[in-house]
Design a binder for these strands. Structure first.
Length: 717
DNA sequence: GCGATCAGGT
DNA sequence: CACACCTGATCGC
């Protein structure tokens, strides 16, 4: 929870996300998003009074935030005092002191924050320097590098201070599965359940807060099932959301709530009261979105955990993980950083210890630090969001780093035409491994801070885990093991392969982006190789493997209110607050659609991170797609393509065999981790050490296994 | 009666 | 583990 006091040191005349106490005297207010902990004092009588006596005081926020806020009658009195600022559009604001007439100009730019609909970061530029207030944010690695307006020319702006969302700024939250992984895990679970019969319904046990909309949208898009919610009037001007939610209870996906909804559920009743449909009792499972995280060295990420007979938890995070935070900050590299949040059990000092080294004000001349080897080969090309390595010896001047060249970004930018052109040639490679998804998973795994390493005994461990699965590991996708679901999966697999073969889509972009990314960042090469290699190298005996899903999907959560008329919903698109023309920015599509009951599994390996994801729908200058635009457009575009191709949609597949992957890859992984700038656990590489090659390592492992002494081969000091 | 705060719950 | 919210109790105005 935010403990930000509302004001930044550089511009004390503005208040952000806090509206009580001293903030009552602010000359301008800013609201980053519509979560209650960022709205303290916003409806207090004291502030209301102040507004009534003022012509000048305004509240600035994104159009979506304004819309959401004003939907509540409690905030209606703000109506004439809110100014919606278009995202990524620098705006000059005069801060006038109404009593003294004193005036100060400031430029503010809203940047998408990926936290919930309408969520933004504020970039302030003025006489006292450039300040970035992140609000709450979830940005995948590399996203900062793609934000045009964080740059000036080709370099990152000189940012004095960052006020940072440090919710998960603790190494124990090292990795949180990407939005796509989580989304697709949920998707496949919901798909498998709801496809059994129409009486199989899912209750998404979501909190009463904005932020789950992209989940609803994507489930609805993929499965053609709208999501039942208690209220949807706040989305009345956001057709891309509105279309996918409903107040009609006769649907198979529910996200409705009730004060005692857990009791409802226990009584086989949905929070909305539904318990049967046309006389037939419903079969309900619940899925509770929860944040799951993984320590640095965990080897697998199960994004779905079965917690009971018919209850599941699904990974879902509104906030950036530790590694994402570090990536972000080390790219921005401000002079100062101030945490907005104290992570659980953490102290300010502890957080600062982590953050300070990523700032320019930090003098690191005490001890020499070496560039980890992994970065050497990509110093010029890597993903610029990578952490500090290549600045290790640099002075402040160099902290303004080149952003990703526009052209490159353009390539990552989904564009339907380009996509279809490229698609076929590209997608095969990254989509060659498919697996029926049957996810075995243990609650322990998911909520554990897995520091256990994925070293040499991976195979053994895997065996062990499979044994465990007999006991406490559950089969997620066939909650009620029955022939139906099982055969369903199998059939699906082949379908999917077919469709993947025919339909240009997700994978095309994946590949496309991979190419893009890989020119900057070797990680993707690795994951790409992994994805391709895993299947042939390690096949599961029964074609069913312990897995997590990943796949398509986008969705940055920050949003505009926007139109996007396409296909089926033109009729709903008539109310539009803002027009963000971004067609051409939109699609990297890859949505399954239509009748496809694809089941895809992705064995995901933690260290791979979410790199590929980032590239797919990055905010790209002014034409950046908003989450919903993207979601919508993706669908429609894909639909079109599917129609053209005459095939069912496809789902993206990127398999990385977790369990196995790693004997041969361990060194790479290690290196990658190092190179991504996590400095918590690793022992720094010896400066001129060579990276062991997989074959060499294999040799070493063999010797180790045989009890031979390998020390003679390596110089040990 | 209202709001702020805290405890407790999900 | 923690988020973001709700409810209910208590306190002060």
């Amino acid at each position: 929870m935010s403990r930000f006091g509302g004001r930044v040191r550089e511009y004390p005349a503005v208040s952000i996300d806090r509206f009580d106490h001293d903030n009552l005297r602010a000359r301008a207010y800013f609201l980053s998003h519509c979560h209650k902990d960022h709205m303290k004092g916003l409806r207090a009588p004291a502030l209301k009074r102040r507004l009534e006596g003022s012509l000048k005081v305004k509240l600035y926020c994104s159009p979506v935030t304004k819309e959401l806020l004003l939907t509540s009658w409690k905030y209606k009195f703000w109506e004439n005092h809110i100014v919606a600022l278009e995202v990524e559009t620098p705006t000059q604001i005069s801060l006038v002191d109404e009593t003294s007439g004193e005036k100060e100009d400031i430029e503010v730019t809203l940047l998408p924050a990926g936290h919930c609909p309408g969520s933004v970061m504020f970039l302030f530029e003025g006489e006292n320097g450039t300040v970035l207030y992140t609000g709450d944010f979830r940005l995948a690695k590399g996203e900062a590098a793609r934000m045009e307006l964080l740059h000036s020319g080709t370099r990152v702006k000189d940012i004095q201070s960052v006020y940072l969302d440090t919710t998960f700024c603790d190494p124990k939250f090292y990795h949180i599965p990407s939005r796509e992984e989580c989304l697709n895990g949920i998707l496949e679970l919901v798909r498998s359940w709801t496809s059994l019969t129409r009486y199989h319904v899912v209750w998404l046990n979501c909190k009463a807060a904005y932020g789950y909309e992209y989940l609803f949208i994507n489930l609805s898009e993929e499965l053609g099932i709208k999501v039942h919610v208690n209220k949807l009037d706040m989305f009345r001007n956001m057709p891309e959301i509105l279309y996918h939610v409903t107040t009609d209870r006769r649907t198979q996906i529910h996200a409705c709530r009730h004060p005692r909804d857990d009791d409802c559920f226990r009584g086989n009743r949905l929070p909305c009261g539904m318990t049967c449909q046309s006389g037939t009792p419903l079969h309900i499972i619940s899925i509770k979105p929860s944040t799951m995280w993984f320590g640095e060295r965990i080897k697998k990420t199960n994004v779905i955990v079965r917690t009971g007979e018919s209850t599941y938890r699904a990974c879902f995070s509104f906030h950036s993980s530790y590694s994402e935070i570090k990536d972000f900050l080390s790219y921005i590299r401000p002079v100062n950083v101030y945490p907005n949040v104290l992570p659980a059990g953490g102290t300010e000092d502890k957080v600062m210890e982590i953050l300070k080294p990523l700032c320019r004000s930090y003098r690191r001349n005490m001890e020499p630090r070496y560039k980890p080897l992994g970065t050497l080969k990509r110093v010029h090309q890597r993903d610029l969001s990578d952490t500090d390595e290549d600045d290790l010896f640099d002075s402040e001047l160099t902290s303004a780093r080149p952003k990703i060249p526009k052209q490159q970004r353009e390539e990552s930018r989904p564009c339907s035409t380009r996509q279809s052109e490229n698609a076929e040639g590209n997608f095969n490679e990254s989509s060659e491994s498919y697996k029926v998804t049957t996810t075995y998973t243990s609650p322990k795994v998911d909520f554990m801070d897995c520091e256990e390493s994925n070293d040499d005994d991976d195979d053994d461990e895997d065996d062990k885990e499979e044994e465990e699965s007999e006991i406490n590991i559950v089969q997620v996708l066939s909650p009620e093991p029955d022939a139906t679901s099982t055969s369903n999966f199998k059939g699906v697999t082949s379908d999917q392969q077919e469709s993947n073969a025919d339909v240009p889509c997700w994978d095309a972009f994946f590949k496309c982006n991979k190419l893009e990314e890989s020119s900057e960042n070797e990680d993707n090469l690795l994951s790409s190789a992994d994805a391709g290699g895993s299947q042939s190298l390690f096949s599961d005996s029964d074609g069913v493997s312990d897995s997590t899903h990943i796949s398509s999907q986008n969705s940055s959560q920050s949003t505009h209110i926007s139109e996007q008329g396409s296909q089926g919903w033109d009729s709903q698109m008539d109310t539009v607050l803002i027009t963000s023309q971004e067609r051409n920015a939109l699609d990297f599509s890859c949505f399954s659609r239509g009748g496809s009951r694809t089941v895809v599994s992705v064995l995901q390996e933690t260290a791979k991170d979410s790199q590929p994801d980032n590239s797919r729908w990055k905010p790209l200058g002014q034409n950046r797609p908003c989450a919903y635009d993207v979601a919508c457009d993706l669908k429609s575009k894909d639909w079109e393509k599917d129609a053209e191709a005459g095939t069912a949609g496809t789902a993206h597949v990127q398999d990385v065999l977790v369990e196995i992957s790693d004997n041969s890859r361990t060194p790479d992984l290690e290196l990658r981790r190092d190179s991504q700038g996590s400095s918590d656990f690793e022992i720094p590489l010896t400066p001129d050490a060579e990276v062991p090659r997989p074959d060499k390592l294999h040799c070493l492992y063999k010797k180790l296994a045989a009890g031979e002494n390998i020390l003679s081969e390596k110089k040990v000091s």
